[in-house]
């Protein structure tokens, strides 16, 4: 993380490449406990809220509705500039103005993003659900219909105000799935994918996801409520060199595929070529091509390549 003269933290080249490659960045424990407590208080969470004797589903729906009605989470119109979305003294304003997070937001979607929507996900312990369907984890999906954009992307901040323990069924997500153009729940048939991850994190963690990443909620087998607050942001400008003023120019000093001295560890080229355990032998290569294409776009370096993945198919003299 770089700290600039104007006190803004911006992502590093490697973090940007990680986002391009994996489709997410994790900021563990980035929000301090005071703000987490403030957020919980603003949404009306009480530690005794689950001690009620009435554990039927009607009470549960009532409890959820009550939180929606009485919480201080504002009703924000779609398209509201992020800067105007939250009141100055609110916990959510503190969250988005966290210096590291606001630097990351600026790096990914610029300094004038609009809020698409936000939502408080509340997952109660599974024993509170009586309907069998609600005792099943959520199917894998992405948060969009077929999205044809190849270069522009939205981001989704997932803020976890309390710790998410393993048995709490934290969000399952598939690293590197964000280039796959699918239609929302159409992928629910894929129950498990090799390399899938589950959110397990300390309180105050924020994960920034590419809008197209495959994910699904797990079952909460603990005795505690699991909260996740989602904020979806869209850019209002081209996402080119938003984190840096550096000029990128590929030097064409490419390591050849396979027969080489090893790609430099943690270099941009290594990050972009790292395959996921679930990549098919053929489509996985296309995912690498798509990463390189996105990196070319966000760095404005039209000649960038890694191991000639793109140069090879662009060498056309007809």
């Amino acid at each position: 993380m770089k700290k600039r003269k104007n006190n803004n933290f911006l992502l590093t080249d490697n973090q940007m490449a990680e986002f391009v490659s994996k489709g997410y960045l994790i900021f563990d424990n980035i929000i301090d406990n005071k703000i987490n407590k403030k957020f919980l208080s603003e949404i009306g969470h009480t530690s005794t809220s689950l001690n009620k004797k009435n554990t039927d589903q009607a009470w549960l729906a009532e409890h959820y509705n009550e939180i929606m009605k009485t919480s201080k989470i504002p009703l924000v119109k779609a398209g509201t500039p992020l800067k105007k979305a939250y009141k100055k003294n609110s916990a959510l304003n503190d969250v988005i103005n966290n210096p590291v997070l606001s630097g990351a937001i600026k790096s990914l979607v610029g300094d004038k993003p609009k809020l698409d929507h936000h939502f408080l996900h509340i997952t109660f312990p599974s024993k509170y659900y009586h309907d069998a369907n609600q005792k099943i984890s959520q199917g894998n999906h992405n948060d969009c219909v077929i999205d044809p954009r190849e270069k522009t992307f939205d981001i989704q901040l997932f803020y976890f105000p309390t710790a998410v323990e393993k048995n709490m069924g934290g969000t399952r997500y598939i690293p590197g799935s964000h280039f796959r153009m699918v239609n929302e729940m159409a992928i629910a048939r894929y129950h498990n994918i090799r390399g899938q991850k589950h959110v397990v994190c300390p309180a105050g963690t924020v994960i920034i996801f590419h809008h197209n990443i495959w994910h699904g909620a797990g079952i909460n087998n603990s005795k505690k409520i699991r909260y996740g607050f989602k904020i979806r942001l869209m850019p209002t400008q081209k996402q080119v060199k938003l984190w840096t003023k550096k000029t990128y120019k590929n030097n064409h000093d490419e390591e050849a595929l396979y027969w080489n001295r090893g790609i430099e560890k943690n270099s941009i080229k290594e990050i972009l070529q790292k395959t996921e355990p679930w990549f098919e032998a053929d489509s996985g290569r296309l995912d690498i091509l798509n990463r390189i294409r996105l990196w070319r776009h966000i760095t404005n370096d039209k000649n960038f390549d890694a191991a000639y993945w793109l140069t090879r198919i662009e060498n056309d003299y007809n």
């Binding site: 280039f179 796959r180 153009m181 699918v182 894929y190 098919e280 053929d282 489509s283 798509n290």
Partner: peptide
Amino acid sequence: YRTGYLKY
């Protein structure tokens, strides 16, 4: 070059 659903 577009990727999508799992193929196999």
